[in-house]
């Protein structure tokens, strides 16, 4: 049970956040890139006012894996960096917090392009 409940929470919360994205695609004609951007910025705002962290505490990856979580991470990073470094933290906090994810995506994307070429079914 101690495994099932957190998995279920992640599933439901993550699913709902994705479902909202789907409704945005189907009903607003927003392009995917705009939705991603909107999610990240919303995540920064929700993270900034301290709401989103509560959701992360509740749903774990269900809240941190959707791009809202990426925004929350940026906000959290800035907060911590400002506390540690003062004014410089305003600029360093965001990138520091998401450095791992972005570096992984960049390097693995580069590697993927070395290994594969684009295909069609």
């Amino acid at each position: 049970m101690d495994l099932f409940i957190p998995l279920l929470r992640a599933f439901v919360v993550g699913g709902i956040l994705c479902g909202i994205g789907q409704l945005l695609i189907d009903f607003t004609k927003l392009t995917p890139a705009r939705i991603l951007t909107g999610y990240v910025v919303t995540g920064v705002i929700l993270g900034g006012i301290g709401v989103y962290q509560k959701l992360v505490d509740f749903a774990g990856a269900g809240a941190s894996v959707p791009l809202l979580g990426f925004g929350n991470l940026l906000a959290k990073g800035v907060r911590e960096a400002v506390a540690e470094q003062g004014m410089l933290g305003i600029l360093t906090g965001g990138f520091t917090a998401c450095a791992g994810g972005i570096a992984a995506a960049v390097v693995l994307s580069l590697l993927s392009a070395v290994l594969w070429k684009s295909k069609i079914k």
Binding site: F11, G14, G15, L17, C18, G19, A59, A61, V65
Partner: peptide
Amino acid sequence: SAFLIGGGICALGQG
């Protein structure tokens, strides 16, 4: 589909 697959990816992440 978005709910199930998106939720599934998040649950995998939680795993």
